[in-house]
């Protein structure tokens, strides 16, 4: 979570609100922030740390492990209409790469801004060419994009 806290400004700049969720109580969240996370990141955690002690939220998102009573590393990007655009779920020992979340948010925001008229190819980042799906592009993607452009 300290990695997310460290990127909070970048996410805020994209108008992304962050909510973290675990089965710990909000009291434990406070102590974790005060005693540890605030020593890893200037200003500590500035987003809401949600408590899901009964696992109800985790179940609804398919990330709650009934055997262990914990939640997997699930990351969901939800758009302004409340629709889930992306999800990534990992088992506990491997951490996330937040830069990839930022990239995906930028791509989904770009697609949304074009009203779905553009799509972003693999590895797209702002400033790189997009694809404009339509009859003219069928079988002709090779003319405008190839993996070396990723």
């Amino acid at each position: 979570m300290s990695a997310v806290a460290a990127q909070y400004d970048a996410l805020q700049a994209l108008d992304v609100e962050v909510l973290s969720v675990s089965v710990d109580s909000h009291f434990v969240h406070k102590i974790w922030n005060d005693e540890e996370l605030s020593k890893m990141v200037d200003g500590g955690v500035r987003f809401r740390m949600v408590s899901d002690q009964a696992g109800n939220i985790g179940r609804a998102y398919g990330v709650y492990d009934e055997q262990q009573g914990i939640e997997m590393r699930g990351r969901f990007i939800i758009d302004p209409d409340g629709v889930i655009q992306a999800m990534e779920v990992m088992t506990p020992p491997v951490g996330r790469k937040l830069a990839e979340t930022v990239r995906q948010v930028q791509a989904f925001q770009h697609v949304r801004a074009t009203g779905g008229k553009e799509a972003t190819p693999a590895g797209w980042e702002p400033g790189k060419p997009t694809l404009k799906p339509g009859p003219d592009l069928v079988g002709k993607v090779w003319k405008v994009w190839n993996p070396s452009m990723e």
Binding site: V16, S22, R48, M49
Partner: peptide, 30 residues
């Protein structure tokens, strides 16, 4: 659900964030 937020305890409702992008992040534990 209840949450800790910048020194206070609050209630969070996901639908309160309608109109914004949200990154919802689950993790195994504090």
């Amino acid at each position: 659900a209840p949450a800790y937020y910048q020194g206070s305890f609050t209630n969070v409702k996901l639908s309160d964030f309608a109109g914004k992008w949200v990154m919802l992040c689950f993790y195994p534990g504090d």
